[in-house]
């Protein structure tokens, strides 16, 4: 299984950096983490469109949104992006 970082080494302990969950984000210190999750999801898709799909730099965003967003939400948003009715303007996909 992929952990979002493109790193598939087996985990040895809870302190393993491959296993550790995302750190707290200084921009999102509220108990309400809704916006944190959404921002990370949008940032990931912006990043992928700007830097090309599968770019290593975008892995961090993916790791965070995968860790904190409920899978159902992610599924819904991905469907919206596919259908073109996602509420945020994303940059054009880069052609490789």
């Amino acid at each position: 299984m992929s952990n979002g970082n493109g790193n598939d080494k087996p985990v040895r302990s809870l302190e393993d950096p491959n296993f550790k969950t995302c750190l707290q984000d200084a921009r999102f210190q509220n108990q309400n983490a809704t916006k944190w999750c959404f921002t990370m999801f949008v940032d990931f898709h912006k990043c992928e469109r700007l830097l090309g799909e599968g770019s290593d730099c975008c892995g961090q965003f993916k790791k965070v949104y995968r860790a904190i967003c409920p899978n159902e939400w992610v599924q819904k948003w991905e469907e919206q992006i596919e259908e073109g009715n996602f509420p945020v303007d994303l940059p054009e996909k880069r052609n490789k």
């Binding site: 299984m1 296993f19 969950t21 707290q24 409920p70 899978n71």
Partner: peptide
């Protein structure tokens, strides 16, 4: 909340709870 090791997502449904651990595997 300082430096947690694991994130557990808890989703309430009518009438059960569902849990998601997606730090490593989903």
């Amino acid at each position: 909340i300082n430096n947690p090791s694991i994130t557990i997502k808890i989703i309430g449904h009518q009438w059960y709870w569902s849990y998601e651990y997606s730090d490593y595997k989903n």
